[in-house]
Amino acid sequence: MKKEVLLDLYYQMVLIRRVEERGAELYQQGRIGGFMHLYIGQEAVSTGLIAAREPRDRVITAYRDHGVATNCGISAKEVMAELLGKVTGTSKGKGGSMHMADTSKNMWGGHAIVGGHLPIASGFALGDQYAGNDNVTLCMFGDGATNIGYFHEALNLAKTWNLRVLWICENNQYGMGTAVERASAVTEIRQKAEGYGMKNGQVDGMDVMKVYSAAREAIDFVRKTSQPYLLEADTYRFRGHSMGDPERYRKAEEVKQWQENDPIGIFNKYLLDKKATTRKGLDEIEARVEIEVNQAVEFAEASPEPALEELFKDIYAE
């Protein structure tokens, strides 16, 4: 991978983290409402994955979607504006944290019904198959989402109909407060693909380089064979499930242990070891991100609220 590409990945990961740290502050000040789920700790998954796609490949994910949005090329400004419910946000302020999308960038949304977007992902691939192209749909979801019927119906359909979907399970060890082994018959989520005769793999989701190469391989496989593939990324969310989670279900030491495996820290070390950049180079990226986040907040704050008529718009196309 070229140096610039590597440094861009680093920039993207730091951007996700700083946007969300600022978002958390604004939430605590009561300027963001609703549910807000932070991606902090999982940045390597989305960043490595989306770097491996072609722009024509579609991305769809769950409500933990701010990072996926910026990885797909949505600006921090639009993300922040959506969080503040402004008309300049990705979804005109109507969607909020859980519903970021820009279909022109092939980011087809954050979705708030657990597992609900999986059959829709099969549908994207169906639409593309019907159109005769070889686009791949990248569908991201959590470990908890693999226990609902939607997951199973979507995987079965994808395999039976030879649909080009790369299923990416972000196994962050919990669905809300329920540890994987308390809710899932198998703790290795990828095994669930076996039941559908679907090719699958597992990757360390804290290491962006590993995610990138696993995703690259999987996307190639899906595109060439017209077969779905399930990739399980082992990861961890450093923050609560959503803002205000009392986190009674896990021990502080466990969180600390995973934090020692910080995906940004791991990549930082990798870049220095490989001499892709210097400490100063990394600091410059941090500084650039800080400016970008500040500008995003300023933009969001200065943006207007949606007009009252917006309430009645976009319900129907006609």
């Binding site: 409402g33 609703g34 419910g85 402004k86 979804s91 302020g93 109507k94 969607g95 909020g96 944290s97 519903h99 609220e305 949606p306 009252l308 917006e310 309430l311 319900i315």
Partner: peptide, 8 residues
């Protein structure tokens, strides 16, 4: 459908 924006 209910929007996210508080005023709306």
């Amino acid at each position: 459908p209910l929007p996210y924006n508080r005023t709306l």
